[in-house]
């Protein structure tokens, strides 16, 4: 049975709105059409003038682009532009001098002060009206604070009435408005029609056509003196929008534009900080260690560095792909890329080594019987098989091998991070089936959607970093590491130093820090990861003290000491007034709210409204700081040999990048949770000292080496 499609009444609403917009055009902007016709005429004559002048053709017409509009822009509103701006350039020059004379007169300044005071007076009137309401609200709330109760989560009668009102009036209206908005957004025909009509009324099309009309006229005449006339005409056309929209609406528009600009500035600053961070990371060697006492944000810093490093490795692969692409500019790289993708899907290619083997097999096959199909359809007879960079001659198969390895590094979608704690990465690979592109932006991701495309760092199997003895001898991961960013937090606890490893023997049966050849791996790590002379590897570690990691490994590193972690700052300008207001409001609300919580447990209307209002402001404020907040770390860089020479530097931690579910600051907390669960007692069950002075029995309960030694002497 076919179901009859129900007619949506919202179409009627949209049609009525359309009729209203058309009526507005007829009654308020009756001359918009004639201006459009004029502009088309100006354009036609200017084009004809341009061609006649260019090709020396005789003509008997005059271009009309410099003539003023014959009708007023908005007849009903008068068209004040004509009185403000002079019609001619000479008139403008004369007014320019008069303007500065007037600007410098005290009468004009006093007049301005009076105008400002008038505005302030209007503002005061608003405050005077608002003040009794606020006062009433305060008295009303204070009344509640006088009465104590324990009515847990019970709504007062006014609150019940308010909730009923919102459920039966506000919510349906809001739902309808949102539904209407979605309805219009989905139907492009309506909103595009309205947009075009308003653009037409505000002479937008006329302005564009007039611009091209003058462009052609100017190319034919080079009449510089006519430019002012065009500015004047532009002002007349724009006057339609300036005159029609009221001042308060312009204030709103101004605030929206200012908000947009300040956010744009904030994003630019955050990206600038990110580039500075990348410069800092690039200046470090392949292995480096970040040190700092507890709470100095060292794990946060290495996570941030690892995230930037991952992006930089991909960027480097991308850059080198282009370099190799240009060596054989007519090579059909897409055919090679598609074959690589297929081989990766079939797990024929899963590492740089397998890429090399795959390419070399193809090269051998081609060498046996050369033809285009075996060389990815490359027309080698026409374009050649070698490339000379004036240092050496490279064959096409060598470049293919390099390109394939770089493409493998670039295109793998899992994270390039291999860490001993979890790190979330959210770079997105956009692929239309051609060359894929990475979106590496850290600052514009939608926090509600990140889980849908997030990946996490690979689990670091330390056996894969050991060239000697391994903890699991038949470990399938042991030879897997080739390239990527290795991140090791608390490296000293894993590797130890010479004092801690005194009792470990190199010839022990099981793996230990002395016989696993981890340090040898560290010294040779770039060999497995070098493609096209660039090492696609970094080892980033952290520890509280540099000495906690043995000198043999530490000497390879640079040590980044975090000396100071600065306060949270905001990259977005023009937020100081909002911050002042927020601090003032939030401080007062917190005091009032906890006084209320102390006295009462029920829900009342004034507190419900106040809390909702403050929560909204708090969410906005927190959202701004989370998006545009950053903190500056003061760091000192020292050689791993600890020669005592420090280079001062700065590193920026941007909230949106590093605190957006990136990692857990208590990454080993599950161990301590498990340990605590084994205990049957908690802090409340521990014995307390009876007085200010501990007794001998109480001291014995400490199980302290020191106390035990003292007690032995008794």
């Amino acid at each position: 049975m076919s179901e009859k499609k129900k007619f949506d009444y919202r179409h009627i609403v949209c049609l009525l709105v359309t009729l209203g917009v058309v009526a507005c055009g007829v009654f308020v902007f009756p001359n918009a059409f004639s201006r459009l016709v004029e502009s088309v005429k100006d354009f036609g004559l200017s084009v004809a003038y341009f061609f006649c002048e260019t090709f020396g053709i005789e003509y008997g017409f005059t271009p009309t682009v410099n003539e003023l509009p014959t009708l007023q822009i908005i007849p009903s509103l008068g068209g004040g532009a004509t009185t403000t701006l002079p019609e001619t350039w000479d008139g403008f020059k004369s007014n320019w001098g008069t303007y500065w004379q007037l600007w410098a007169t005290s009468d004009n300044f006093i007049g301005y002060l009076l105008y400002v005071s008038d505005l302030l007076f209007t503002l005061c009137k608003v405050i005077i009206i608002a003040l009794p309401i606020i006062l009433f609200f305060y008295v009303y709330l204070s009344r509640y604070l006088k009465n104590e109760n324990n009515d847990y989560d019970k709504d007062s009668r006014p609150l019940k009435a308010f909730k009923w009102f919102t459920a039966h009036v506000y919510t349906p209206v809001k739902t309808w408005v949102i539904g209407m908005y979605c309805f219009i957004r989905e139907r492009k025909g309506y909103w595009v029609t309205w947009l075009c009509l308003w653009l037409f009324y505000f002479n937008a099309f006329t302005i564009v056509i007039e611009f091209f009309a003058f462009y052609f006229y100017f190319m034919g005449s080079f009449d510089i003196s006519s430019i002012y006339r065009q500015v004047y005409k532009l002002c007349l056309d724009l006057w339609a929008i300036f005159d029609f929209i009221p001042v308060w609406a312009w204030v709103v528009v101004g605030l929206i534009v200012m908000d947009h600009i300040r956010k744009k500035i904030a994003y630019a600053r955050l990206r600038h900080f990110e580039l500075r961070n990348r410069g800092f990371i690039n200046a470090r060697p392949i292995v480096y260690m970040v040190c700092g006492t507890m709470g100095k944000k060292k794990t946060t810093a290495i996570t941030d560095m690892a995230l930037s490093q991952e992006v930089m490795l991909r960027d480097k692969a991308f850059e080198k792909l282009l370099e190799n692409d240009l060596k054989f500019s007519c090579f059909p790289w897409i055919i090679l890329e598609n074959e690589l993708k297929r081989a990766m899907e079939h797990h024929e290619i899963y590492s740089l080594a397998t890429v090399k083997v795959w390419v070399r097999k193809k090269a051998i096959r081609w060498n046996k019987a050369p033809n285009r199909e075996k060389l990815f359809d490359y027309d080698y007879e026409r374009y050649g098989l070698t490339y000379d960079n004036k240092l050496k001659v490279t064959t096409v198969w060598e470049v293919i091998e390099t390109y394939a390895q770089l493409y493998f590094i670039y295109v793998i979608q899992s994270s390039l991070l291999i860490a001993n704690y979890s790190v979330r990465v959210d770079n997105v690979l956009a692929d239309l089936g051609n060359f894929p592109m990475w979106n590496n932006d850290f600052f514009k991701s939608d926090s509600r959607l990140v889980d849908s495309y997030s990946r996490h760092a690979h689990i670091l199997d330390f056996d894969s970093l050991r060239l000697g003895r391994k903890i699991v001898e038949e470990n399938r991961n042991s030879d897997s590491f080739e390239f990527g960013v290795v991140v090791i937090t608390e490296v000293g606890k894993e590797r130890g130093n010479s004092i801690e490893l005194q009792d470990k023997k190199k010839n022990a049966d099981c793996a230990n820090q002395k016989n696993d050849l981890f340090n040898s791996w560290l010294k040779m790590v770039r060999h497995s990861a070098t493609v096209d002379n660039f090492p696609f590897v970094r080892v980033i570690t952290d520890e509280q003290r540099p000495e906690s990691w043995g000198a043999d490994a530490r000497d390879l590193c640079e040590i980044v000491h975090i000396r100071n972690s600065g306060d949270m700052s905001l990259a977005m300008p023009f937020f100081s007034f909002a911050e002042l207001l927020y601090d003032w409001l939030f401080g007062r609300f917190t005091r009032l709210y906890y006084k209320y919580r102390f006295v009462r447990s029920d829900n009342t209307l004034p507190m419900y409204l106040l809390k909702a209002f403050v929560a909204k402001i708090n969410h906005y404020y927190t959202g701004i700081y989370n998006r545009f907040g950053f903190c500056t770390l003061s760091v000192q860089i020292e050689s791993g040999t600890q020669d005592g020479q420090y280079d001062e530097n700065k590193y920026f931690l941007m909230s949106k990048k590093i605190y957006s579910k990136r990692f857990s600051t208590d990454c080993f907390s599950d161990f301590f949770t498990e340990k605590a669960l084994r205990s049957s007692i908690g802090i409340n069950d521990l014995l307390e000292y009876a007085t200010e002075k501990a007794t001998i029995d109480e001291l014995q309960l400490q199980n302290s080496y020191f106390i035990n030694d003292l007690l032995k002497g008794l």
Partner: peptide, 30 residues
């Protein structure tokens, strides 16, 4: 310190708006 900085920034914005306003006011008076 932070509050003083915020007050100064707010005053700076107000001053900028005041000065721009004077230029516009003079143009309208002309």
């Amino acid at each position: 310190m932070k509050t003083i900085k915020r007050i100064l920034c707010t005053l700076l914005v107000v001053a900028i708006v005041f000065v721009i306003g004077y230029f516009i006011y003079t143009a309208v008076q002309l």
